[in-house]
Design a protein around this nucleic acid. Structure first.
Lengths: 123, 123
DNA sequence: CCTCTAGATTGACAGATCTCGAAACAGAGG
DNA sequence: CCTCTGTTTCGAGATCTGTCAATCTAGAGG
């Protein structure tokens, strides 16, 4: 509970797992520790659906009021999952008046995808 | 209460979230339940490192005896993490004589990557 | 200023996960 | 057959996670 408050993913250029595939060469322990929380945040069905719903919104943003419908969990639980996704850097929230709107951070999603892909160059 | 006990990932190819990006359109609850365990299996630093080490092996396979070095956890723990990765369909193990060799399942890794990628057309 | 609604936070509890030591299993070799 | 080494499986304990009820905060509108 002391090392996944940080999101050094974007700033990981020090050892730089931003776009370098996992399969390129073995990643360091530090990189693994930095990256694991992001994947872990995707490891819950509700969060996966939330991210998908936010990322697939036509306007690019989704109101939390729209997210509450369609999930059979309570409001606080949705809020909790949104917080996890927020801390993983996968979404960002903005309050406009009464409602809160969330947008997906495409770069972060692509960065994670880049880690898993065997590589377009490898094909 | 409990909706994450199953791991029907291997048969998730029937409802086919194989390469369709999350951000294309909102995924179903069933697909989310099928996919989440795969991401969850990547949500541990040790498993991330194990997969990276296996996938980046020059010969395409890695002996468990080589995996034991470099990790400060016990043998059974390594074996447990390998089992999780195996059940997630990310690696496959083969016993040859005394030793067991693991290979990475590239298609599965690419499939997960395809879910996260924003898409070349969507940029 | 007061009230009302939308979200977020807190506290608590059941269930899952990580980790290890001990034991079991699989081959190789004597 | 017996033993030895490498790997997996089997409990068990400590920690983490998902969920909800209750409470709190931010802004809108009277």
């Amino acid at each position: 509970m002391s090392k996944q408050k940080e999101l050094p993913l974007l700033e990981a250029e020090t050892s730089a797992p931003c776009c370098e595939p996992l399969a390129e060469h073995s990643i360091s322990t530090a990189d693994a520790i930095a990256l694991a929380p992001a994947f872990k945040s995707l490891g819950d069905p509700i969060r996966l659906q939330l991210l998908s719903q936010i990322a697939s919104a036509p306007e690019g943003e989704t109101c939390v009021c729209d997210l509450n419908v369609g999930f059979d969990v309570s409001g606080p639980t949705i809020s909790h999952h949104l917080k996890v996704l927020r801390e993983a850097g996968l979404i960002e929230g903005e309050r406009r008046g009464t409602w809160v709107y969330y947008t997906a951070v495409r770069e972060r999603m692509s960065a994670l995808a880049g880690l898993l892909v065997t590589g377009p160059a490898a094909v």
